[in-house]
Design a binder for these strands. Sequence first.
DNA 1: ACCTGAACACCGTTCAAGT
DNA 2: ACCTGAACACCGTTCAAGT
Lengths: 210, 210
Amino acid sequence: MTTHQQFSREAVLTAAEELVRTRGPQALTMRRLAAELGAAVTAIYWHVGNREALLDELVQRTVREMGQIRARGATPAARAESVALALRRKLRERPHLIALVHERGLTELMMLPAQRALVHEAHAAGLRGEAAAQAVRAVQFQVVGFVLVERNRERAPRQQPGEPDLWDVETAEQDPALAAALARTPDPERLFAASIRALVGSLWGAEAGG
Amino acid sequence: MTTHQQFSREAVLTAAEELVRTRGPQALTMRRLAAELGAAVTAIYWHVGNREALLDELVQRTVREMGQIRARGATPAARAESVALALRRKLRERPHLIALVHERGLTELMMLPAQRALVHEAHAAGLRGEAAAQAVRAVQFQVVGFVLVERNRERAPRQQPGEPDLWDVETAEQDPALAAALARTPDPERLFAASIRALVGSLWGAEAGG
DNA sequence: ACCTGAACACCGTTCAAGT
DNA sequence: ACCTGAACACCGTTCAAGT
């Protein structure tokens, strides 16, 4: 046989990223990728080594693309809050890739711009040393953790027993409004905003303004 | 051939749980499980259907085993805090199984005992209706999210650029203590306690006592 | 330098066959 | 009712061979 399809390492990475972004890492099989590129499976190995190295490269790219975070608002607390909100939005744009970054232990590096912004606002609020570090990390963990929980909830659309069934007036401290609220699927947008406001408000030592 | 090894459905589940608990779900292959039981692969299919159904069963068991959560402390805020701490401990005892529960959308059901305890304390603190529901959910998300982040950090032992390299005095607002604190690997125990205290303290509208 | 097919050691699953 | 081996359609990866 003669040499058939010619394609760059770049083409491999692009096709792989497309697969991972739209259908998740489990959809990235070397054979499927080869088919997509119209080449033999083994050609991919020449370009990128193996599957693990390929995923590593995608992860590197994601870290680079995460870019800058700009704080907005009047008070340090409000500005810290805005960083958290922006961070969540960015993370949610590429959930599969973020999960990979996370598994490969590059979360810290990826979070650096946001972390710097939070450090700045913590300092502006008068926090110093260990206390500032803990406040910054608490917000970081909160955002990443929330996004992970949120994603998993979306992936598992209907809770198997159905949340509505679990709460009635009797189990909810005789509080009908509470029972109704717990029976509803939570609005992650509002829940996140409220949680972050509570956390930042407490750690930054002030009310976080809108 | 004559019938060789006889073994119960129970034996399959026990062996499978052992594999998942100690080495994670990816270590659970039908062939490995069969080898462990000294039987043919296909015998397992007779007992449990297929791999997916087997994992479902393990998940069900985990949910059942999560049991009760007892609140401890004097004030409602302190008691809510204790629920969060106990919940984190329980979740961390079986991380792989918890991840499976989560993927299968049974987190809500599993969290029910803890949720009831939190609802009780929220009510005791005077929170009602929607506000109480949001406070309870914020704590839930916080705990689960934290455990997920924490686990992933442990799985990826050394951050690839090394956190120490990322922070020096100049990048840390000229605050040497802050730079040192951010360069250290965070102590999850303290970070969790501080975050939960901040969140609960803010949402429950009072300081959370020890 | 870049691509090929054959081959190996793994998967989960189905099925007809045994007792 | 309970277990067997053969077979199928998938994996990731290695390797000698082509041009």
